[in-house]
Write a protein that binds this DNA or RNA. Structure first.
Lengths: 176, 176
DNA sequence: GGCGACTTGAAACTCGGTGTCACGTTAGCG
DNA sequence: CGCTAACGTGACACCGAGTTTCAAGTCGCC
């Protein structure tokens, strides 16, 4: 409820123009309540985003152990693709808002960045032969870049391009 | 001068504990002057960082056109490696501060993120056959990840590991 | 001397975020 | 039924970053 009110204001006036007081007034609650709900203004938009990290790490751990790192990462990210496909209208609007707002873009990166150790850890556990930590970290980071870049292209195409295909294309760019 | 004063305070007390007023008082200037110099508190640390982006893009454009994208990116990043090697003591201290301070870490990513289009553009200009934009963007992003991850490992090793080798190792992780 | 550009300082202001306290509601329990 | 503890909410004070505006200096230059 609160998040919907905030999102509507953000989309109408732009994230930076809307103050927390505006959100509180529009929702009929106090500023304190808004802050208590979201912690930060950015989290009014990106709150749902938090769960994805653990989901992807879980999906990665569930991949067959013989599988190639890149393949496993690609399939694990299908979790996110599915979420976007499930309500593509809302995802598109939110993504556009994020891409248009540096503060949101940055905050989203911060959240995703915190997934990285878990993904690298999951890759390390999968590997038969031990590899240097740097290897897993780089692969996790690159996979997340692929996701972000694919999503950005998808949003810019107004959902005319297929997110799955874009993600495949992004991963393909890594393998020469 | 101002930057040195700020850095010393940050390293001594932590970035978040030091206010702009503290910096102003320590440097014997007014708060206004500090803000006018740096724009933001983060830029008191990351100001020198801005130039690197154009340097890397320039180095990338200067690579022979027949060269592999990954090889070209790797060599272009030597510009940054050289800067770090030139004054490894200062670079180490600054890197540690950045890694220990979320606000700085984030701001550094923002700056590096703004390099990405230039790097992707440089890759596009190098390519003989035209490739989808997403390919160049992914490769530029992955290369920057390699740089960051290598630098982080190098800083955590207290300069006992070689940054060049770590960067090679990071790039190697991308090619299976 | 006077003019204009640049630098600095001062102060007021906006806004995000933290912390505290008081008030009401509700649930649990004797 | 009444007591209490927990919780959600609002009000308020506070801090610090960043913006803006205005009022001096300070310098070179004509």
């Amino acid at each position: 409820m609160l998040a919907e009110v905030a999102l509507e204001l953000f989309r109408r006036d732009g994230f930076d123009k809307v103050t927390i007081n505006d959100i509180a007034a529009a929702a009929g609650v106090s500023r304190s309540t808004v802050l208590r709900y979201f912690g930060t203004k950015e989290d009014a938009v990106l709150g749902a985003f938090d769960a994805h990290g653990e989901q992807v790490a879980g999906a990665l751990r569930a991949r067959p152990s013989g599988e190639d790192d890149w393949t496993a990462l690609r399939y694990a990210l299908d979790i996110v693709v599915d979420i976007y496909r499930q309500d593509s209208e809302a995802a598109l609007a939110t993504t556009r808002l994020v891409l248009a707002t540096p503060a949101l873009h940055t905050r989203q990166w911060e959240k995703q960045h915190s997934w990285r150790p878990a993904l690298a850890q999951a890759l390390a556990e999968r590997g038969a032969s031990p590899r240097p930590e740097i290897t897993h970290t780089v692969r996790a980071a690159a996979a997340l870049d692929c996701l972000n870049i694919a999503i950005a292209h998808w949003a810019r195409s107004d959902n005319t391009l297929n997110l799955d295909d874009l993600l495949d294309e992004a991963f393909a760019a890594l393998r020469q």
